[in-house]
Simulated scan of single mutants.
Amino acid sequence: MCPFKGLTRLSPRLCRGSFNWHAAEGLLRPIDESRLDLDSIYPTILEQSDNLGTIYRGKRYAVPFSWGAEGLSFDSTVHDYQSGGVSWSDQWSLENKGFVATRPRSALTSMALMIDGTGERLDSAYVNEELAREVFGEALLFGIEHKSYIRQFWNDVEGLTSAFTLNNCVIGQSWSGVGFDLWKNSKSKFKFVAPKEGALSWLNTMALPAGAQNTDRAYELINWLSSVKGGGMFMAHTGHNSVVVGAESGLDLASRDRFDFAYNSGQSIENLYWWKPEPKWFQDLRNLYVKKYKAA
């Protein structure tokens, strides 16, 4: 719950598994879009948010305000990768054999996206169990064939950080926040970039509880975080990405350079691959294939 009374934080990620926020009748109140100024939000993010649970039965119930991603961190003393041209497949190049870090829970998803290329089959797999088995089966086969490339699996911030700083990994799947911390703390030795097929991305939103009383102030905060100045301050003080176009202008020069490199001066934002709400059968199936991947 947000400390700003009248406002709550809701993420479409909560829709994974069997939970959907709208199944809890009376949880949220519809948002009056006439009181919002959403023109500054990346159009693609606003559009994608509608498919991730912010709209229900034609009414808006949530407004996006921040996002993050899983992309690739790499050792820039080993690789001279350039923004906008890096693929998920680059980590599986022969020269990286034995030096890759990855997260088992999402590795098969990035592999499926890499094999797919467009994300269309992966999108369809969320609603088609037979196709989902095909997609994860293909990813599992690729993962097993390239398992010798893995130097370290990671599951948390500490594991991801140590993979690069202590265990000599030179490339691997990485959360953006940790990737930027690695970049900063290593004096630019390690860099983070969104793959051209799309970084795996999640979205955080703001919503109004049904019993909210301070709605005027809540709308003020929503509009503040939807402004370039507010979004920039949010990025500067939290380290998370704002959904506002140009919010990175509020960052210091080094942080702005890291953002511009990672997301190709904002162009990669148009091609993010958003985590979808997951039916329970999908979640269970993916977990089964991840288990097979780890055990192989």
Rank of each mutant, 00 (worst) to 15 (best):
K292M: 15
Y56F: 15
L203T: 02
R60H: 13
W67S: 09
S265P: 02
F4G: 01
G71L: 05
G17A: 06
L225A: 01
N168A: 07
F136Q: 10
A247F: 10
K292Y: 12
G17F: 00
L7N: 00
D39M: 06
E129P: 02
G246K: 04
F282Q: 00
E130F: 03
I41S: 03
F136D: 00
D284F: 04
R9Y: 05
E47F: 06
V157H: 07
A262R: 05
Q91T: 03
G84Q: 10
K294Q: 09
N223R: 05
I144N: 12
G246Y: 01
Y263Q: 07
S83Y: 11
Q173G: 11
D252F: 01
A125H: 07
P43I: 10
G85Y: 14
E138Y: 04
K187Q: 15
N185K: 14
H146N: 13
V135N: 04
S11W: 03
I31Y: 01
A101S: 13
R103E: 13
Q48G: 08
W224A: 03
S162L: 08
L141M: 12
E145P: 02
E129A: 10
W88E: 04
D260N: 13
Q91K: 10
R121S: 06
G177Q: 12
P30M: 10
S83R: 11
I269E: 03
W88C: 04
N155L: 12
A296D: 10
L131E: 06
L251C: 13
M114Q: 08
I45M: 10
D80Q: 15
L141W: 12
F136I: 05
W154S: 09
S66L: 00
N287S: 08
A236C: 04
D32V: 14
T44Y: 09
L131R: 06
D80G: 14
K196I: 11
W183S: 11
N128R: 08
W281G: 06
S49W: 02
F190S: 11
